[in-house]
Write a protein that binds this DNA or RNA. Structure first.
Length: 481
RNA sequence: GGCCCGUUGGUCAAGCGGCUAAGACACCGCCCUUUCACGGCGGAGACAUGAGUUCGAUUCUCGUACGGGUCACCA
């Protein structure tokens, strides 16, 4: 059996949609699991949509997630070039060959005629299709127009009757009537191929064995099958994957602002978590585990786990998975990720490692961080009602009393560590014969000014330092008096 | 509209003729606990629908409904 070769073939739009990324991921896994090759090909035959620097976005993203390609534009390979605009002569050659083989023909209809035709067809409720006006031009007529320099396209010569069947791994055999198939354009006036032609030529020439692509190509797949037949080529294995949706009705789209890999990174998600999550959309592993690194994904991946129905992208689930990844990070690594976010609201000279340690179990996405650490630089103005806590049995009165007792105790702490503070305050708690929260709640409120904080009174005091802690306690006590 | 495809809890999903129909996220409750988290335990919640095949259908077939895709010199 020959080597498995798969390809990811994005068009450079300057934007890598998570749906595309997921397709790339599945494609990559299929190749790697089989010990095969993963190829990157850039489909840039639409010159009007050319976007400067778009290829770099693709390279950068795939590298960031670890999908390394064995062959591609920047790394080369035996089947290049890997950018379609650099292959235009190849397509032309094969288009002409197809004409000779009887699978295609020259068409000289201009866009105006086509537009009128379409308008008429639509008006009469007929499915818009090319009327095959040029399908039966004589060889002489064609030569003549060609010689005269008439602009032309090359169209596929679809059989007038009969059916075409193609096979998809997930959907099985799908059969359609040839009469429903249009004589689609293969080679455009500008000499470049359409996707419909280029993908067939390239996949064949590049020895692609498995084609993974979005479900939107399902409808045109029979036309590709016909093309392979005309050339006498063997078809690759097809795997059409369903879309990732925003909700039941709409695909996840650019305008939602979280449809690209980079959008997600900017929202504070970790690369590995994104990959892990999107793998779970439309695919499910055999067991119950759902956290997988890329190598584990390759190991675990199986086409039979792919789903035929669309999956709705659930940001909440991504958050949860991201949280798992964050918690699994080493403290050092987490600090590295967290520091820029901490620094957004906490500029002071604090022990960031300690802050990060408190943050790590409380962070699902990195962007959760700034709001959690905004009290370190300066205590926010807070409402005294914060001292009222039913469960702790505290109110403003009890808090004032407690703080009055706690202040001297805290001022006396010489070992300013969580342990030292623990010893001192728990001493007071024991002495007073009250519950921990009765003392610790008001202390925490008094030095943080917040209802919720990462860590408790001891941790906050430890990080704030003695001088600042005492200053805040005094200030809060003033407010309570 | 024609053609193609899909439909298991709110979401992702397992299931491949016989199960009390997994699991995860979210939700609710309890425990842990100095807040919030983390962690632990428990709970509620689903086979779109109608026929047929069968001793037996979530699973097979057909219809219906709903949803999606596609009908470009875009990919």
């Amino acid at each position: 059996m020959s080597e498995v070769r798969t390809r990811f073939a994005p068009s450079p739009t300057g934007y890598l949609h998570v749906g595309g990324l997921r397709t790339a991921l599945f494609t990559y896994c299929i190749a790697k699991k089989a010990g095969g090759k993963f190829i990157l090909r850039i489909e840039d035959t639409d010159q009007e949509r050319y976007v400067e620097g778009a290829n770099e976005v693709i390279y950068r993203t795939l590298r960031a997630v670890g999908l390394s390609w064995d062959e591609g534009p920047d790394v080369g390979g035996d089947y290049g070039p890997y950018i379609q605009t650099e292959r235009r002569d190849i397509y032309k050659e094969y288009a002409k060959k197809l004409v000779e083989l009887g699978g295609a023909y020259y068409c000289f209809c201009d866009k105006e005629r086509l537009q009128e035709l379409k308008a008429v067809q639509e008006a009469s409720g007929v499915n818009p299709m090319y009327d095959r006006h040029c399908r039966n031009l004589s060889k002489e007529e064609v030569e003549e127009k060609l010689a005269a320099g008439t602009p032309y396209v090359i169209r596929q010569k679809v059989p007038l009757d009969g059916t075409t069947t193609f096979h998809d791994v997930l959907y099985g055999d799908i059969t359609v009537e040839n009469s429903t198939l249009d004589d689609q354009i293969l080679l455009k006036t500008d000499g470049l191929p359409t996707y419909n032609f280029a993908n067939v030529i390239d996949d064949h020439l590049m020895g692609i064995t498995h084609v993974v692509r979005g479900n939107e190509y399902l409808a045109s797949a029979p036309k590709y099958t016909l093309l392979y037949k005309s050339f006498g080529w063997e078809e690759p294995v097809y795997i059409h994957v369903e879309h990732i949706m925003r909700d039941k009705q709409h695909k996840l789209s650019k305008r939602d602002g979280d449809a690209s890999y980079e959008d997600l990174i900017n929202k504070g998600y970790l690369s590995d978590a994104i990959v892990n999550y999107i793998a779970l959309l439309g695919w499910s592993p055999k067991g119950e585990r759902e956290i997988f690194s890329l190598p584990e994904l390759i190991e675990e991946f199986d086409i039979s786990g792919l789903s035929k129905s669309p999956a709705i992208f659930d940001p909440l689930k991504l958050r949860a998975i991201n949280g798992e990844y964050i918690r699994a990070l080493s403290p050092e690594k987490f600090l590295e990720y967290a520091e820029p976010y901490i620094r957004k609201t906490c500029k002071g000279d604090f022990d960031l490692a300690k802050i990060a340690a408190l943050l790590q179990p409380r962070t699902e996405v990195l962007t959760d961080i700034p709001d959690q650490v905004d009290f370190f630089d300066e205590m926010p103005d807070y409402d005294l009602s914060l001292y009222e806590n039913k469960k702790m049995k505290t109110n403003r009165e009890t808090s004032r009393e407690v703080l009055e007792k706690a202040l001297p105790v805290i001022e006396n702490v010489s070992d300013w560590t969580v342990d030292g503070l623990h010893e001192a305050l728990f001493g007071l708690i024991a002495e007073m014969g009250v519950k921990n929260g009765y003392v610790l709640w008001p202390v925490r409120v008094a030095i943080t000014g917040k209802q919720f904080t990462p860590g408790g009174a001891l941790e906050a005091a430890d990080i704030l330092g003695k001088a600042e802690t005492v200053r805040r306690l005094r200030k809060s006590l003033e407010m309570l008096r």
